[in-house]
Design a protein around this nucleic acid. Structure first.
Length: 116
DNA sequence: GGGCTGACTAGGC
DNA sequence: AGCCTAGCCAGCC
């Protein structure tokens, strides 16, 4: 039912998973939720991302929705900042969507880094 | 307790 | 490709 301990565990698992996303790759809220054992809590993953303060050191910009669309809004300071961070690692974004999403997508469950 | 919201998703058209 | 809908569920008022 989601006790306080559950919420704590869920949040730690989510943060640990985000830390594992390889540079140049990205994953989705739902994929992370499934990977940590709470398949219907994709919205909570987004909530946790939004709660992160500056300097957390996590690659939160590598988390987008299941279609590869950037739905974080201005959570990175101003519109376009998230896209800039992605571009720095070679992830192309057009119209708020990651190009070649199928190739960029990294599934935490597979834990396989194809690297090209 | 009830109603609305949302860094969501799968399915339909 | 896009847009809409229903389902989702913790958090917030």
């Amino acid at each position: 039912m989601m006790t306080e301990e559950d919420k704590d565990l869920f949040e730690r698992l989510v943060l640990d998973t985000v830390r594992l996303i390889p540079c140049g790759r990205a994953t989705s809220y739902g994929a992370i939720a499934r990977a940590v054992g709470y398949p219907n809590l994709s919205r909570m993953v987004g909530r946790i991302m939004g709660r992160l303060d500056a300097g957390h050191g996590l690659p939160a910009h590598r988390v987008v929705n299941s279609q590869g669309h950037l739905t974080a809004g201005d959570a990175f300071g101003h519109a376009g900042e998230m896209e800039k961070l992605l571009a720095l690692e070679g992830i192309a974004v057009e119209n708020n969507a990651i190009k070649n999403w199928k190739r960029v997508f990294w599934d935490p469950l597979s834990e396989i880094d194809i690297c090209g």
